[in-house]
Amino acid sequence: MSTANGPLLAARDLVKTHGRTDALRGASAELHAGEILAVTGPSGSGKSTLLHCMAGIVRPDGGSVHYEGLRIDTCPEDRLSALRRTDFGVVFQFGQLIPELTLTDNVALPLMLAGTSRREARARAGEWLDRFGVGDRGDARPGELSGGQAQRGALARALVTGPRVVFADEPTGALDSLSGERVMSELVSAVRSSGAAVLLITHDARVAAYADREIRLADGRAAAMEGAI
């Protein structure tokens, strides 16, 4: 376990190169338990790459990522995969729902992967869908949902396993502003009650304003840290 005051997730001096372009050039960030941290910056500043590195989706070329004392950037892939399943939840711009599965099955999937029985998994998925106001769309497939509904389904899928960290990469990027506001306030109220921390990537100041704190990236480095915990 982490020390009482230490960060839950800490990235230090991350370097990552995509081909010939440097996506990250010594970026650092700390995420504390239960806080919402916004990472903002112009496009191409390395926001998504930072999230990918911190979520263990991508291995950085240099620097380190620690999650509760476990070093993620050098951890074997199986362990990372398990970690993403149990401790982390992920939400992307276009959701990450499997187009062929019903909304309920999509949300139940992470639980089934963890060994929960289908019936139990579907029941818990249903509760989360109800909570996000899309309980009546459980039998629909993602293609039959509106953008806002699909994104709520994606939130439910990210939160259903009770993760300690939620990684959200432009979660409202594909939504109109009212749907975006709703999705954000539902995300915030859900993590406030579950105590999960959120790493929120966005280029939209109004979305960033839902966070407790903000890191601004420019040219692959954290340019400034603002706000108080």
């Binding site: 990918h52 979520a55 995969s81 398990a82 993403r84 982390f88 992920v90 992470p110 992967l113």
Partner: peptide, 15 residues
């Protein structure tokens, strides 16, 4: 892209 997202979200490749 969908498959990459599943892997990123923690669905194991072998599944």
């Amino acid at each position: 892209q969908g498959l990459a997202e599943q892997v990123a979200a923690g669905v194991p490749r072998h599944t």
